[in-house]
């Protein structure tokens, strides 16, 4: 109902014909679609690579942060400083700083491509978030599980590997996927330092035609990609809830 009203108000507004022309040009939509879709493949590559790296890197940070004892305090401090820093700085700034700063250092053996540094920036930022998700999962595993494992003579690393982390990861899959949806969208930010991904391609098309329809193409592509991920997350949450009510605690 509400949506119907909004649609009606928008469509019946005085400026609608102009907006329709500028944003919903059917011919332009069809014309610009292949190019943008092709550029979108770069987005997919960016976040697939980033996600794989984040999964591993963030787990390392989370484990570091959970290390016990006063001797390992510097490691814990390092992990805390890392998450504070990269959750604090806006993603776009990290991308700018790395994308323009790192190549300027002219380090040998390090790639200078903006794409490399863009992905690196995304990995650094999102690892800070995902590490916190992992940490919440690790802390949600009851201490008696660790006691049970340690009492059998398993070392702490093996306890983490076989008992704690498998249970923690299962519990955090839904929030993890949620963060990855955010990451998919933020892959567009990499465009700001050069690589021609979907958003950048649509900007180029817009500049060439003075029409905003290509933006709508890009928006549509992102939504289409996000929906399966969102449904998967919903399904996993629902499955977890069913399991918990069936299996009780333990």
């Amino acid at each position: 109902m509400f949506i119907a009203i909004v649609v009606f108000v928008v469509v019946s507004s005085a400026g609608w014909p102009e907006v329709q022309k500028a944003f919903f040009d059917r011919q332009l939509f069809v014309d610009s679609f292949p190019e943008i879709a092709h550029a979108f493949l770069l987005n997919i590559r960016i976040f697939c690579i980033a996600e794989a790296l984040i999964l591993v890197f963030a787990l390392g940070i989370a484990v570091l942060r959970g290390l016990p004892g006063p001797v390992l305090f510097p490691f814990r401090l390092l992990a805390v400083a890392y998450t504070d820093l990269f959750r604090g700085i806006p993603t776009i700034l990290v991308i700018y700083i790395l994308g323009f700063g790192a190549p300027a250092l002219q380090l040998s053996g390090v790639p200078n491509s903006p794409l490399f540094w863009g992905v690196t920036a995304l990995v650094l930022v999102y690892s800070a978030y995902v590490a916190e998700v992992y940490r919440a999962g690790i802390e949600s595993v009851h201490p008696s599980q660790e006691a049970a494992a340690r009492s059998l003579g398993l070392s702490r690393p093996k306890t983490l590997r076989f008992v704690i982390i498998p249970q923690a990861v299962r519990r955090v899959i839904p929030p993890l996927l949620n963060d990855f949806i955010g990451l998919q969208k933020d892959s567009a930010l990499v465009a700001l330092i050069g690589p021609i991904e979907a958003f950048r391609q649509s900007q180029i098309d817009v500049a060439a035609t003075f029409n905003y329809t290509p933006y709508m193409v890009t928006a549509l592509l992102f939504v289409l990609l996000t929906i399966p991920m969102a449904r998967l997350t919903d399904w996993l949450i629902a499955r977890d809830r069913r399991r918990q009510s069936a299996g009780g605690l333990r």
């Binding site: 008696s144 049970a148 009492s151 059998l152 070392s155 076989f162 008992v163 498998p166 299996g247």
Partner: peptide, 21 residues
Amino acid sequence: NVNTVRRRVGIVFQAFNLFPH
């Protein structure tokens, strides 16, 4: 090395503490 001691001493707790996964 507490682990070498623990492999010689078995303990069972009040709550079962089996690994659910």
